[in-house]
Design a protein around this nucleic acid. Structure first.
Lengths: 247, 247
DNA sequence: ATATCGTAGATTGTTGACAATCTACAAGAA
DNA sequence: TTCTTGTAGATTGTCAACAATCTACGATAT
């Protein structure tokens, strides 16, 4: 389906579609769509991205697709090999470890700033998310837990009230998700422990304890990395929706 | 001058030029050249980047130039307004303050990691840089000090041995330089104080004191921000090479 | 004088075509 | 068989032309 029609559908009325096209170039829309396919897992890590395929799928020419590729390249989501094509970036376990260090530093800062700047509305959202996390914890539903986890940290980043921080944080999390998506949280233990840590963070933020929130969020990231390593050690990943295969 | 000839000159022999063109696309070369013009200050903050002008200047068509624009946009160096063009990004004082917070967090991590991982060769480079800083301090030569400062932190980032950290750090520093370039360090005080802090960092890294290096480098960034604010309060910026004017 | 309108030129957004490179596979030699 | 070698098709890199939009500026009306 052409991306213009897709936007028209998304926005409901044809009039809105025109507005969208006034404000966003095709490059932007293509970039967003490909990014969605990558972070949702429709495109597997290592998969080759064919220019013409995307042109046909989205109903645009190669120019905007190539420009979108360059954006995704800078965002760290794809890797380009000259004359060979672009591929969904593969993050090795060593790279993931390094990225976790960066994320811990950024999340520590997020905790510190959020504790003093969080707005009541944001605090309410955080508490609602944690509440839903406890429900997912009872049913051990990892597919439900995963997006809640993303949303929790997204709201925290917002609450920090620092646009540069939010932008950098998003990029780092996006890269990590290239890796985490492959094996998610497999056992109940991880969901339970992770939820406890989220609750503690919310408590510290509620009380405005900047130092505590900073340390808790920093440790939360380091613990997440350790949980990931333990999950990697377990043998049997359960089947998920099959993503488009790597080259 | 066409960018292909420019590359041929840079690499010395014509054979190397062919190798360069095999490995790098025109987009990459254009992106690098424009980035150089921005960080060097040849293009002032807020200046409009005309596609055709760059095509003529670099001897390429608009395709590679537009792709380079998209990369620079993601790197945070330019801002794009649909149907109006791309402009060198302007960083406000408020944004700079926020970015400094992010940089402090990253630099803290750099100090911590570098203290345990720095290689003898890197340590030697750091000491050589600080030595040259002391010379620049005696002559109060800010134009000499500025690149030394950049190099010092670049080597520190390398010494941390974390590619994800280095990449994020470079992006943040690039954005800050959009701002700092405008007023540099104007008075001798700043150079002296900054050099003292660099020396303290080198000492901590030499001794492998991770916690100390982390705190020193974190504080160094915060102090740099304060020095910037003091410099902003001083009235008379001295003239510099005139950059291409903003729109 | 001021404001509105409209046109011409400049600039960006998008497209399709051409050139260069890579990939897959088959034919032939050792 | 196994290795080269070469050709055809597919894919990427680059370019030039067309379409849409914006900007500058002058004519006209109030």
């Amino acid at each position: 389906m052409a991306i213009r029609e897709k936007e028209a559908e998304l926005t409901g009325t044809p009039g809105d579609a025109l507005r969208v096209l006034r404000e966003h170039s095709l490059t932007t829309l293509v970039q967003r769509e490909i990014e969605r396919q990558i972070v949702s897992g429709d495109l597997a890590a290592g998969a080759k991205l064919n220019e013409v395929d995307f042109c046909n799928e989205l109903g645009v020419s190669r120019g905007p697709v190539r420009e979108a590729f360059r954006m995704l390249e800078q965002a760290g989501l794809v890797r380009t090999e000259k004359n060979r094509g672009v591929f969904v970036r593969q993050v090795s376990i060593e790279e993931a470890n390094e990225i976790y260090d960066v994320r811990a530093a950024l999340d520590g800062l997020i905790g510190r700033l959020a504790a003093t700047r969080v707005k009541p509305e944001q605090l309410a959202r955080l508490k609602a998310i944690v509440k839903r996390m406890r429900a997912a914890e009872r049913t051990l539903d990892a597919d439900e837990y995963f997006p809640l986890n993303l949303e929790f940290h997204e709201v925290m980043a917002e609450a920090a009230g620092n646009r540069a921080l939010t932008a950098n944080y998003r990029r780092v999390v996006n890269e990590l998700n290239l890796y985490r998506r492959e094996m998610l949280l497999r056992d109940a233990d991880n969901i339970t422990l992770s939820t406890r840590e989220h609750e503690a963070v919310v408590e510290a933020v509620t009380k405005g304890q900047a130092d505590v929130a900073e340390r808790l969020l920093f440790d939360h990231v380091i613990h997440s990395r350790e949980r990931l390593h333990r999950a990697l050690a377990t043998p049997a990943p359960r089947a998920r929706k099959a993503p488009r295969k790597a080259a």
